[in-house]
Design a protein around this nucleic acid. Structure first.
Length: 662
RNA sequence: GGGCCCGUAGCUCAAGCGGAUAGAGCAUCGGAUUUCUAAUCCGAGGGUUGCAGGUUCAAGUCCUGCCGGGCCUACCA
């Protein structure tokens, strides 16, 4: 509704400027006045027009206000400040619309969306960096589904790479374990923790003696080949660790639909199909000289062909601008496989995975995995209209290479709908690192943050963090609600812990490195998930104490409150404080649109916090159940009900549920 | 060398496309409720937005040059 009004205002102003001044403004800037007293929308367009019209901005603003006439949904416009045009909405009308939850018609673009996130190497436990990825990705999925889009969630599994190979090396060369030993270990509860340590040990072992690296080469080769004992061991490891990842993420209510694996990309020869296309289109070419002699290369993303050079030179790409796709020994690198995979995503490869069910979530949802020969009856994956890849910013260049390859193949449309959802890493503060018992160099101590490293076994494991959060929340719950049963208290503590964690990962903008610190992450006060959850609990308590069902109240509210009541309680400056709360509540779907358009979930976190903050202030100032005036009491209850609904909505999109009590 | 990102209060972060007095949280100090639970609320102090120019009616935001930090730049994945 809020967005609807904004659009209407912009159109009317644009019309007016065209008619009165014969000027076509490409965009009408609309923002919010610094205070609600000044209205809901502010237009600084008079400043821009001043040059063309050779008039003072203030005068232009007054002309616009005088000439525009009434606009549906608005009470009035006024010139303010040095030349702003401020618009005041009809408060009662907007409030009534928000209360009855009317949603203006919304055009949902056609086509399915594929979101890929998590993509953790299946060779060790997930850590806090993976949590940021998964929480950002899952929240973005929820955002898209909220606005009615159909979304498939994929988690790409690199089960044939160096990282898995290193753990295989650890088992075979350091621990001298047999396949059945490993199978037995893999059935232990936290096998991923075992691998975490072993992976670090294997990495150390390579550093002790570079000769040891030959073991990795052998294992890697055997895995790629397939159908041998080593490959079978790698499969046991990667499948078991993958299961653990799914369990860890499900603790946060993060679920996947399909797990495409690199092994199938290899064995189903996705690359061969892509290679043919790339060669035929001239995107890849054979280098016969220099450093990259014998390789198939493509132009590095972002490097334009020198069109000013003579025509014969356009095919010449400087060595440093070449990206090797196929090595001189004939093997294909990661980028090549990724190009093939992305052709599949858009339904352009002409090949498909085999599929089988892999994991059934407690709620009944099936997660599928790729196989060479699969079930005949399976959902249709891939062949989508838009894709989002939640991958950290360090892989920007790699992502751009894939996009450029698509574009060069003539798939411009698809390249335009390929979004690298890029975000910064989670690192540790030096204080946090030493807290965890890591020895730091003087140089490291001086840094503002230290990167986590799976190779060094250096980081905070996801399950550990979740466990710590739950026990920390449990302490609080136990001290407040001794009357509740153990199970119930545990459940509440878990909801609070998840709320805290998910909010923590979402409150930072994507481009900010999170310097992880336990004190901050374990906080349940201030700008945190529990703060917002608590606001909802308070709102719920009012209804419970009052013996009113909030949802039932929402439905009957319109009949109960007359139009005059809305006007009476929202009009004038003395109502500004409550109106601010209504206005914030009206913005949820507007904010959600912004989050999608900018691929930035942090705005929603900020919105939820602001709504909670305004509500807490309201809660403090108005004893609602004690209100003697019955119609005013209903109005205050309506305010509470609407804020409660919008806050729960925003939190749900962030994957945060609200406990019954706190 | 080239590319991308960052630098805002003691700390951690915000600040739609350039707009009105740069905002939150934490920490510190001081206060509040016999009430719908204080995981709350109110108040105070705290800023030359890294530096220097430029564009503009208007710059934390755009441009140029410095300073400082991070990441990418493999025939790794």
């Amino acid at each position: 509704m809020y967005r609807h009004l904004e659009r209407r205002l912009a159109e009317r102003v644009r019309d007016f400027v065209r008619r009165s001044y014969s000027l076509d403004l490409p965009k009408i800037v609309i923002e919010q006045p610094p205070k609600v007293e000044l209205g809901e929308y502010a237009l600084p367009l008079a400043f821009e027009l001043a040059k063309n019209l050779r008039k003072a901005p203030r005068n232009i603003a007054q002309e616009i206000v005088a000439g525009l006439g009434p606009i549906e949904g608005f009470e009035k416009l006024e010139a303010a400040g040095a030349g702003y045009v401020n618009a005041r909405v009809n408060r009662a009308e907007l409030a009534a619309a928000v209360a009855s939850d009317v949603k203006p018609r919304y055009e949902i673009p056609a086509g399915k969306i594929l979101v890929e996130h998590s993509s953790i190497n299946p060779n060790k436990a997930a850590h806090i960096g993976h949590l940021r990825n998964a929480i950002l990705g899952d929240t973005f999925v929820r955002l898209l589904r909220f606005v009615g889009r159909e979304v498939d969630v994929q988690n790409y599994i690199d089960n044939t790479g160096v990282q898995v190979a290193d753990v295989v090396v650890g088992f075979l060369h350091l621990e001298k374990k047999s396949k059945s030993d490993i199978e037995q270990l893999a059935r232990q509860p936290r096998f991923d923790y075992y691998c975490w340590d072993l992976y670090a040990r294997a990495s150390q072992w390579y550093e002790q003696d570079k000769q040891n690296l030959s073991a990795r080469q052998q294992v890697l080769h055997a895995i790629e080949e397939g159908k041998n004992q080593t490959a079978a061991i790698a499969d046991v490891i990667s499948v078991s660790v993958l299961r653990r990842h799914l369990e860890t993420m499900d603790r946060l209510d993060i679920k996947y639909d399909f797990l495409p694996r690199e092994s199938e990309i290899l064995h189903l020869h996705f690359w061969d199909a892509a290679f043919t296309k790339l060669k035929d289109a001239g995107v890849l070419y054979f280098e016969s000289e220099g450093k990259n002699k014998g390789c198939w290369v493509m132009r590095r993303a972002g490097k334009k062909a020198e069109t000013t050079e003579a025509a014969e030179n356009t095919e010449e790409v400087a060595e440093e601008d070449q990206k090797v796709i196929v090595r001189s020994n004939g093997t294909v690198g990661y980028a090549g496989k990724d190009i093939a995979y992305h052709l599949w995503k858009f339904g352009l490869l002409g090949r498909d995975f085999g599929y089988r069910k892999f994991y059934k979530y407690p709620n009944g949802h099936d997660c599928w995995i790729s196989t060479t020969v699969g079930a005949l009856d399976h959902p249709h994956f891939g062949d989508v209209a838009e894709i989002y890849n939640v991958i950290d910013t360090r892989q920007s260049e790699e992502q751009n290479t894939v996009i450029e390859a698509l574009r060069a193949l003539g798939y411009g449309q698809q390249a335009d709908h390929y979004t690298h959802f890029s975000y910064e890493m989670v690192a540790l503060t030096p204080a946090c690192a030493s807290e965890l018992g890591y020895d730091l160099s003087e140089e490291d101590k001086a840094r503002s943050y230290i990167e986590v490293s799976g190779r060094k076994g250096f980081g905070v494991k996801a399950d550990d963090l979740i466990d710590t959060l739950i026990s920390s929340a449990a302490k609080e719950v136990d001290s407040r609600h001794a009357e509740l049963g153990v199970e119930e208290r545990r459940k509440i503590a878990t909801q609070i812990a998840i709320g805290a964690l998910r909010y923590f990962m979402l409150k930072f903008t994507k481009s900010s490195v999170i310097a992880f610190d336990f004190k901050e992450a374990l906080s349940f006060e201030g700008e945190t998930g529990p703060y917002a959850q608590y606001a909802v609990v308070r709102a719920t308590n009012i209804f419970r104490k009052g013996g009113i069902d909030p949802d039932e109240f929402m439905r009957t509210m319109e009949r109960e409150l007359a139009v005059e009541d809305w006007k009476k309680y929202l009009a004038g400056d003395e109502a500004n404080e409550i109106w601010e709360l209504w206005l914030a509540a009206a913005k949820t779907s507007y904010v959600i649109d912004q989050c999608i358009a900018t691929t930035e979930p942090a705005y929603l976190a900020k919105h939820a916090f602001q709504l909670a903050q305004l509500f807490n202030y309201f809660y403090h100032r108005h004893p609602i159940l004690a209100e003697a005036n019955q119609s005013r009491k209903k109005f205050l209850l309506a305010t509470t009900a609407v804020v409660r609904r919008e806050l729960m909505r925003a939190l749900a999109v962030m994957g945060i549920v609200v406990p019954p009590v706190m």
